[in-house]
């Protein structure tokens, strides 16, 4: 058994890609939240809670959706031994700023609950009933080595890891999630498997 990347999603420059295939694209003048809401509609997601979420959670929910709606991934891996390992630069800063503007007037509880980086982890976990390990790392830029290293450690005791980078501010958003799992190296399907190593992760991130 070896660790392979089975699926990945990228959101960057107002484009959505799944496994290297362009799924949707918007004008670059469209702001990140509007673009994410366009994607939501185009995927026919019926999940009204989406509209209550902050930008970071919206970004994470959409990236995870494309990966986990695939039956080969959704049904083959036990949710209790699937970990979620995420990272970004901004933590929840966009929502922190929005919340801090409400402090002197009426502090908003619905904004405050999103002022933690790992709320998006919770949102993904709830939507897909994933109860495994969690970790959220803050890095100045995408760090394939760190994610690869920690994922490899987790896969010693767990079956799969949903992993990646979710970063958002007013002007841009960048999402890259990928799903790593143990696979039989002799499996016929392995032609579609991407070996889990930092170089491959970086390539997929750069799309």
């Amino acid at each position: 058994m070896r660790n392979y990347i089975l699926s990945h999603t990228n959101i960057k420059n107002n484009c959505l890609w799944h496994n290297g295939k362009l799924i949707s694209k918007s004008d670059e003048t469209v702001n990140p939240i509007s673009f994410l809401e366009e994607i939501y509609k185009s995927l026919n997601l019926s999940y009204p809670k989406f509209f209550k979420m902050d930008g970071l959670s919206k970004l994470g929910i959409l990236c995870a959706e494309l990966i986990l709606k695939d039956e080969n991934i959704n049904q083959l891996f036990p949710k209790e031994t699937t970990a979620i390992v995420l990272s970004n630069k901004n933590s929840s800063l966009q929502t922190d700023v929005a919340y801090s503007k409400t402090i002197n007037d009426f502090p908003s509880p619905s904004l405050f609950v999103y002022t933690l980086s790992n709320i998006v982890t919770g949102e993904i976990a709830i939507k897909h009933k994933i109860t495994g390990e969690n970790a959220f790392f803050i890095e100045p830029k995408f760090n394939a080595e760190l994610l690869h290293n920690y994922t490899e450690l987790l896969l010693k005791e767990n079956d799969a890891v949903l992993c990646g980078w979710l970063n958002i501010n007013e002007k841009t958003c960048e999402g890259f999630l990928y799903f790593v799992a143990k696979q039989d190296a002799n499996d016929e399907k392995k032609i579609n498997f991407i070996e889990h190593n930092p170089a491959n992760i970086t390539n997929l991130y750069n799309n």
Binding site: K89, N90, S91, L93, L116, S117, N118, I119, T121, N134, A135, F136, F137, I138, E139, P140, L146
Partner: peptide, 28 residues
């Protein structure tokens, strides 16, 4: 305000040669 910048300030003060790892996962 960026958490990794804060970690860098502390790390540089002690001249840690490795880049710090920053964990921000609510109350755990």
């Amino acid at each position: 305000i960026y958490l990794h910048e804060t970690a860098q300030v502390i790390s540089k003060y002690f001249q840690f040669v490795n880049k710090p790892i920053v964990v921000s996962n609510a109350c755990i």
